[in-house]
């Protein structure tokens, strides 16, 4: 630590100002717009109006619902995958881990686009369905909530797996074999040993997945289109199609509140984790 506080302040100030002026200030103005009535002054009119629209309500609850579903599903798959991965030898564990985080480095547009090929009218899944004679001409899979759900799950599952692996690696060694030796079946091993010991990782992963899904743009844009709007695609549509800035500002507020709550939760929970190589 060096003493001169002013030097420190001088060094950090440009960054703080840069970020605030570009991110906080404009967003602050945007958010305040929703509280301004048509004749100026404070008003909650924009919020009342927003939630009186059936479409907006549908989108709001759909985003919440999809966020929860993606979070729950990724938790279930995540536990199975993370538990299996930590059983591996260190060498193959590293390799599998690299494959799990690989998708995170790839453009989400590229990642989501692949599902068009798989879920399209003549896509892979429909070929199988038609081939098995389950349907004449294939099913409408794209532009459904299911498609968005699958896309989001693939996008965010790695975050859950990483969070769970890191908290499983922090479990005391051999607690699982110890519980087995004491006569616990796998069901009670999970609920009585693994789950309580990895709760922190579950909450960290769950929060990231939930918030990520609820505020996603690319996946609902590509796989949901205008049929399955979510909060961000609705915002985009309200602005570009209807010039409806009041609605945009309300959605913005929902997103910002979500994001702040998430960050507070994470800050409270994410103690310094040991980063793995």
């Amino acid at each position: 630590m060096f003493e001169n506080k002013n030097t420190g302040l001088l060094l950090v100030l440009p960054a703080a100002v840069f970020a605030s002026v570009l991110f906080l200030l404009p967003v602050g103005i945007l958010l305040s717009e929703a509280f301004t009535g048509s004749e100026g002054g404070f008003s909650l009119g924009a919020y009342v109006e927003f939630f009186s629209s059936e479409l907006n309500n549908t989108v709001f609850w759909r985003s919440l619902r999809l966020g929860l579903w993606v979070m729950l599903t990724s938790a279930v798959i995540g536990y199975a995958a993370a538990f299996s991965i930590v059983q591996l030898s260190p060498k193959s564990r590293g390799r599998v881990f690299a494959l799990i985080i690989l998708p995170l480095m790839i453009s989400p547009v590229a990642r989501t686009y692949a599902w068009l090929v798989i879920l399209g009218r003549t896509g892979l899944v429909n070929q199988v369905i038609v081939g098995l004679g389950l349907s004449e001409e294939g099913l409408q899979l794209l532009f459904t909530e299911t498609a968005v759900f699958i896309g989001l799950l693939q996008l965010f599952l790695p975050l859950m797996i990483i969070a769970l692996i890191s908290s499983m690696e922090n479990m005391p060694r051999d607690v699982v074999p110890a519980a087995r030796v004491l006569g616990a079946n796998w069901f009670s091993v999970f609920f009585r040993v693994i789950l309580p010991l990895t709760r922190e990782g579950l909450v960290v992963g769950g929060t990231l997945v939930f918030a990520g899904s609820m505020t996603a743009y690319i996946t609902p844009a590509i796989l949901g289109g205008s049929k399955v709007l979510m909060l961000e695609t609705l915002l985009y549509q309200r602005v570009t199609v209807a010039n409806d800035y009041a609605a945009a500002s309300v959605i913005a507020m929902i997103l910002v509140v979500m994001s702040i709550v998430t960050n507070l939760l994470l800050k409270r929970l994410a103690k310094p984790r040991n980063r793995r190589a």
Partner: peptide, 10 residues
């Protein structure tokens, strides 16, 4: 913390 779409719009 602030969602990017809002920043772009703002």
């Amino acid at each position: 913390i602030v969602p990017g779409i809002i920043v772009g719009l703002a």
